[in-house]
Design a binder for these strands. Sequence first.
DNA 1: CCTTGTTTTAAACAAATGTTATAGCGGATT
DNA 2: AATCCGCTATAACATTTGTTTAAAACAAGG
Lengths: 208, 208
Amino acid sequence: MNRTNDVNTKQALLLAAVRVFAKKGFRAATVREICQLAEANVAAVNYHFGSKDSLYAAVLDHTFDLEKTEALRERFAVADDAPVEDRLAAYIRTHIHEIYADEGWSGVASDHWAIFLMEMATPSPHLDSLVQDHIQSYAGDLRALVSEFLGVPPTHRMVMDAAMSIWSQMFDPLLMMPITDRFRPPRPRVQENLEAFADHVITFTLGG
Amino acid sequence: MNRTNDVNTKQALLLAAVRVFAKKGFRAATVREICQLAEANVAAVNYHFGSKDSLYAAVLDHTFDLEKTEALRERFAVADDAPVEDRLAAYIRTHIHEIYADEGWSGVASDHWAIFLMEMATPSPHLDSLVQDHIQSYAGDLRALVSEFLGVPPTHRMVMDAAMSIWSQMFDPLLMMPITDRFRPPRPRVQENLEAFADHVITFTLGG
DNA sequence: CCTTGTTTTAAACAAATGTTATAGCGGATT
DNA sequence: AATCCGCTATAACATTTGTTTAAAACAAGG
């Protein structure tokens, strides 16, 4: 079996799909465009993934794979016995970089999070399993930190609200980017001041 | 000329379009479904609006028409010479109700803001004029309030950031609803505690 | 070198969909 | 009553698009 070619075209399809889906959304993205970007045949998607929908499911799986944050998590790592404030700050910094750091090809925010945003606007049937398998564990980590910080159990209502508030704050520039980019006079983008934004979220959070 | 029928089917098409676009997005929405909901013919869209795209443009115009907030603005009105905190609170309360108050047909947030969210996820060409004509004036009102509250000129960087932060906070439950709705155990929706959420945003804002 | 299993390719298909052409209908005007 | 005009209805068209089919290319094993 042609193993090398196998994983190559399949991988190429996946990466191309991430880009095209992020740019156009599921419905507007065509498998022809994806295949063209991946330099593969039109039938490649159906051969390797079965259908356009399954390819999208694979993209979602790949998108919310936790291993991609490992590098960033190391970069902002603090000791496990550091004060809660510091660990909370590290958490925020890590994810802000994860969301807004360019991965090299596009001028806007990371493709993965563009897809995430589209799932929030028009959820697909895959979102159910996505929340259960990936996102809820994300939220669990944050809840633990907030719980420790506030000194109340993780199931407390206040912890849930605060965690969601922190989580939301990190997405706000991503959400509003289409508007802020069209403001005149133009405003600087978040990406150019990532540290400042992180500090802003952190101080705002610890104060509230 | 058949005036009554004229405006009726045109209006019915517009309202149906709002609902269908809000539910499925521009691309996935079909003019056949819109016409069916409006109890009109398939050709009605092209006759009255020229094209599906122009219909969508009309929907956007209708969506961000400011007159719809008039009723709410009166409901939460405070005197013009009231303290800035009160006017800011009124502003926040008004828009939170505007965003999350059901208009009677759907279980989720208002259709107009669902469309807004989709525009943030995958902006259409119409967004440019939309920001200039409607949204920027929205933002201007808020900036004036924040400027007065902080005691710095409206062009100051801090005012911009704070205004955007307030604006974003109001949208956060809308943005995260697809996730929170899928959490288990289920969490109560924002709509059921609108006042509490408004108070939360207000206190959080005035503190920061 | 032939066979076998896997991948790629080109062509075609079937369904969906925005749009249009054309005829029909109803009320208003003359 | 005849005509005109705006609106509606039916059918069809052209294009796009996901998917399939069948053949060819290819790599590996015997």
